[in-house]
């Protein structure tokens, strides 16, 4: 329940943070010239409206928590609990793999780093068939290279290992 409530504050939280940054930044934009509004007008208006909307969203979330707090012993809907269970560990693993892949690719080269990345991501998706993983990964990397670099002329990095 507690995690659920925190998660429901995440989107309005992101909105509020964006509002703050936008307001703080657009205050420094050049002023309007010749009666015609300058670059600050639209971001300012949007930031204010977004701020109000996110406050309304937070209020809504608080109200819902109070309501559900009272009726907590009543039956909780099964779909809610299913949605709430986030596979944190696997999600973190995949995100880390993606970030690492992007950092390493220019240095290692496209085909080799992509092979490793696909193999690791298969592992994250719980596909564990030993050598099959690697065969799929290396094949996919070559096909992608052919498709993007050779056919579509996309410059892919070449590092110390292909």
């Amino acid at each position: 329940m507690r995690v659920d409530f925190t998660l429901s504050l995440l989107p309005p939280g992101i909105f509020l943070a964006t509002t703050a940054v936008a307001l703080w930044q657009s205050a420094t934009f050049p002023k309007a010239a010749g009666g015609v509004p300058g670059p600050a007008l639209v971001p300012m208006i949007l930031a204010v409206v977004l701020g109000l909307a996110s406050l309304a969203l937070v209020t809504g979330a608080l109200q819902r928590r109070n309501l559900s707090g009272k009726s907590e012993n009543l039956k909780s809907r099964p779909e809610d609990t299913a949605k709430a269970s986030v596979p944190w560990r696997r999600l973190g693993m995949l995100l880390a793999a993606i970030v690492l892949y992007l950092v390493v690719m220019p240095w290692m080269g496209f085909i080799s780093s992509t092979t490793v990345f696909i193999a690791v991501s298969l592992f994250c998706f719980d596909y564990r068939k030993g050598i099959h993983n690697w065969a799929f990964a290396i094949l996919a990397a070559y096909i992608l290279y052919a498709l993007f670099a050779l056919l579509m002329n996309v410059p892919l990095p070449v590092g110390w290992l292909g």
């Binding site: 050598i131 065969a135 290992l161």
Partner: peptide, 21 residues
């Protein structure tokens, strides 16, 4: 046979990489 094929693909692929570099 499937496992053998997989090994073959992996070896061929890595061989290609090494040859290219």
């Amino acid at each position: 046979r499937k496992i053998l094929l997989s090994w073959f693909v992996v070896l061929l692929g890595s061989g290609g990489l090494i040859w290219m570099s």
